[in-house]
């Protein structure tokens, strides 16, 4: 589903690479934790998958397409196959829960009847049934993240990227979010989650890839957060 072939990313000329010769393959339906200190290259990895950045060297394949040869006008279509969730939720504050999720479908031109059936289903899936008319500031942090996940998942992407989705949440709420991501993973969606949260990683027992200063120092199936040290 995602394949990195010897990928290097250097932001500024002469600076230390953010990612250094990464080789990595993520299978369809896999759940992958990306761990490592701040600045180790986790976010760069996710940005490369979304093609918000282009690699300085190496090749990246996402959903069967090679990103470096993908023309700019095809990038939106690539992104429709990828859902993304962030630490800061990134909801639109003046739109309701329903509108926030519907927004993702409206802007890619989905017909109204499709939106009217899909959005309530997805909100039900993430456990927000009955809160369609709330505004984001009326929700708890965990609920806001659920809205963000609903928005990322409403178009049924084959890949879900999560950049520290529990970073702003307390442990109990985080567990709920992880259950949700796990459930989404079970529908066949590939999930890549960058995180600092060792408890969660240790609990879930999924594949763990650890980055350190842009280099891959560990790739462990059913791994834990900090075994390499």
């Amino acid at each position: 589903m995602i394949r990195f072939e010897n990928v290097t990313k250097v932001y500024a000329r002469g600076a230390r690479p953010a990612l250094d010769a990464i080789d990595l393959e993520v299978e369809r339906g896999e759940f992958l934790f990306l761990v490592g200190a701040s600045g180790s290259g986790k976010s760069t990895f996710l940005r490369l998958v979304l093609r918000e950045e282009r690699p300085s060297a190496g090749r990246i394949f996402v959903a069967g397409k090679e990103l470096s040869t993908l023309s700019t006008w095809k990038v939106p279509h690539l992104r429709r196959q990828i859902g993304a969730v962030f630490q800061d939720f990134r909801l639109l504050p003046n739109k309701t829960v329903f509108e926030n999720v519907a927004f993702a479908l409206q802007v890619i031109g989905k017909p109204r009847h499709h939106i009217l059936t899909t959005v309530p289903d997805t909100l039900e899936l993430v456990g927000l049934g009955g809160k369609e008319k709330r505004l984001p500031h009326e929700l708890s942090g965990g609920e806001q993240q659920r809205v963000a996940i609903a928005r990322a998942f409403v178009n049924r992407p084959s890949i879900l990227l999560a950049d520290e989705p529990t970073g702003n949440l307390d442990p109990t709420t985080s567990v709920g979010i992880m259950r949700l991501l796990d459930r989404i993973n079970r529908t066949g969606t590939t999930v890549v989650m960058a995180t600092h949260d060792d408890e969660i990683v240790d609990q879930m027992r999924k594949r763990v890839v650890e980055l350190e200063s842009g280099q891959m120092v560990r790739d462990q199936s059913r791994g834990v957060y900090g075994s390499a040290r």
Partner: peptide
């Protein structure tokens, strides 16, 4: 910017944005 950022993220076409 917030709206257009999300639009880009979920794959809205350039023209649409």
């Amino acid at each position: 910017r917030r709206e257009t950022g999300i639009m880009r993220l979920v794959g809205a076409s350039n023209l649409f944005i």
